[in-house]
Computed example of a mutant assay.
Amino acid sequence: MKLLQIIRMVLWSFFGVRKRAGLESDIRNIHPLAVIGVAIMMVGLFIGLLIAIVHAVINGLM
């Protein structure tokens, strides 16, 4: 359950929307290194998705 909680926390931080009560609760229960690791993986997935979309668009137009 903690992994899903970390993923949810990172996704909300990408949007910049977070309630103070939720943030304080997460800070007490989650290790900072876990958050950093999940955030790096999600950024990598996001960049990979963007690259895949660009390749699909370029290959579709040629």
Rank of each mutant, 00 (worst) to 15 (best):
I51A: 04
K19G: 14
V54L: 11
P32W: 02
H55M: 08
R18Q: 13
A56G: 08
L49S: 12
A39E: 04
M41R: 04
V43N: 00
R28D: 13
K19E: 13
E24R: 12
I53N: 05
L4D: 12
P32M: 01
V35N: 01
N29C: 10
L49Y: 09
I30D: 04
R8E: 15
M1G: 14
L11P: 05
V10Q: 06
I27W: 00
K2V: 14
M42C: 09
W12C: 14
L50M: 10
I7F: 11
I51P: 00
V43D: 00
M1N: 13
M42E: 10
V17D: 13
K2G: 04
I30R: 00
V10P: 03
R18M: 15
E24A: 14
E24I: 10
G16M: 01
I6Q: 06
A56W: 11
I51M: 06
I36T: 09
V43H: 04
W12K: 15
L33H: 05
L33R: 07
M42H: 00
F15L: 15
A21C: 09
G22R: 12
S25D: 15
S13M: 15
S13Y: 04
A56T: 05
L49G: 05
V38P: 01
F14I: 07
K19V: 07
H31L: 05
M9D: 10
M41V: 03
G37A: 03
L4Y: 08
L33A: 06
A21T: 11
A52V: 04
L45K: 04
G37E: 04
N59F: 07
I27A: 01
L50Q: 07
Q5Y: 10
L33F: 02
G48V: 02
L61M: 10
M1W: 06
M42L: 15
V57T: 06
H55S: 06
F46R: 05
P32T: 00
I53Q: 07
I30W: 02
L49W: 09
L61A: 10
F46S: 12
F46H: 11
G16D: 03
A39K: 08
H55L: 12
V38G: 02
H31G: 00
S25G: 10
M42D: 03
L3H: 11
A21F: 07
I40L: 06
V43Y: 07
I58C: 05
V38K: 03
L61F: 12
K19S: 11
G37C: 01
